[in-house]
Computed example of a mutant assay.
Amino acid sequence: MSGNRMTRRPRGKKGPAGGSGGMGRRRLEGKGPTPKAEDRVYHPAHKRKLQAEAERRRAEEARHRTALRAALQLDRGHELIVGRNPVVEAVRSGIPLTRVFMSGALAGDERLGEVVRTATALGAPLVEVSRAELDRMTDGAVHQGVAIDVPPHEYAGLDDLVERAGAGPRAGRAGLIVALDSVTDPHNLGAVLRSASAFGADGVVVPERRSAGVTAAVWKVSAGAAARVPVARVPNLVNALVALKKAGYFAVGLDAGGQARIDGLGFADAPLVLVTGSEGKGLARLTRQTCDVIASIPIDADLESLNAAVATGIALYQIDRLRAAAEPRAAGQAPAVEPRVAADDRS
């Protein structure tokens, strides 16, 4: 029926349909291959990857620490001298050194340049370490980022100290030796070495037992004097005093109850061995009996005693002062006091 005939809408013109104008073109491009699961930050495999990398780093650091500890291991009997001034003084004094440990931050320090040059000349390795490693190596001592590894101290013989008498800058003066009886504090020994160097002593005698030896602590306190003043370590101090007395030395013991004053010795210009005891017990009985004279240092009555190192320093100063003021002893003139040689059974 003509009334029911369907009519079609006329078609539009041919041509491109309306669109975005190419603005959505990137959405149609591919995004490349799919990332691995371990590279997707939200995936559990990524967490496992991070954990594995952290474990590898820890293992590498552990291997490095193990290798470093092996490199830092000290040989038996070796000591560490730490601190800039003690290290520089020790190197200048000619102490043998095996290695130099230094923090990287000190590479440009002018004061340590001499240490580096000396180590290079001696063929001693220069090991760069962290301050934390030096803390562990020195048990928390104040190292200032530098330390040197030195072999055990070479002690002199008693005869070596006698042969040094009258040599060096104080040539012409009688021999002067310091003997320490049961002084166990290394700081006291270091301070005594410093005083001995200052007042021209030929050396220091210490017993092998119940006495401090020359260690890194002694080196540091002595400020290099440990290299300038020889130390003799003897099996028996009384026997050593007897030997020195046979060689012409007078043994002067320091004690608060001494019958003589150290500033009034009439034979200060004769060869002397100054004997100092420990601060608590003082001179041992046999040591006291072996001494020719027991001298005291006049102090205030309220003070019972002086530190061993302080007393030795004062006594050395007084002896040096008396010697400087005394006229040269005439040839063949006998001293005011004859040395008493102890009996052979005092051992």
Score class of each variant (00 low, 15 high):
residue 255 D to V: 10
residue 158 L to F: 07
residue 163 E to I: 08
residue 221 V to W: 02
residue 259 Q to T: 03
residue 267 F to N: 08
residue 257 G to P: 12
residue 183 V to R: 03
residue 151 P to Y: 09
residue 236 N to W: 04
residue 156 A to V: 12
residue 228 R to M: 14
residue 198 A to S: 14
residue 176 L to D: 03
residue 190 G to E: 12
residue 177 I to A: 06
residue 193 L to M: 01
residue 174 A to R: 02
residue 227 A to W: 06
residue 178 V to P: 07
residue 237 L to H: 04
residue 165 A to I: 01
residue 184 T to E: 15
residue 163 E to C: 05
residue 215 T to Y: 02
residue 270 A to S: 13
residue 224 G to L: 10
residue 207 P to S: 00
residue 206 V to L: 12
residue 231 V to A: 01
residue 190 G to F: 00
residue 223 A to I: 00
residue 228 R to A: 13
residue 240 A to S: 09
residue 151 P to K: 06
residue 159 D to V: 10
residue 263 D to A: 11
residue 271 P to F: 15
residue 252 V to H: 11
residue 210 R to I: 03
residue 167 A to M: 06
residue 227 A to T: 02
residue 162 V to Q: 06
residue 166 G to V: 01
residue 161 L to P: 03
residue 251 A to N: 04
residue 219 W to D: 07
residue 227 A to E: 15
residue 164 R to T: 00
residue 230 P to D: 15
residue 205 V to K: 14
residue 205 V to F: 14
residue 177 I to P: 11
residue 217 A to F: 08
residue 232 A to H: 07
residue 189 L to V: 08
residue 232 A to Y: 08
residue 232 A to S: 15
residue 236 N to G: 10
residue 246 K to C: 05
residue 250 F to N: 08
residue 236 N to I: 11
residue 184 T to S: 08
residue 257 G to E: 15
residue 218 V to I: 02
residue 259 Q to K: 10
residue 204 V to P: 00
residue 160 D to M: 05
residue 233 R to D: 10
residue 219 W to Q: 03
residue 192 V to I: 07
residue 252 V to S: 13
residue 210 R to M: 11
residue 181 D to C: 14
residue 163 E to P: 05
residue 216 A to F: 01
residue 178 V to Y: 08
residue 179 A to Q: 01
residue 169 P to A: 03
residue 212 A to R: 15
residue 204 V to C: 07
residue 178 V to E: 07
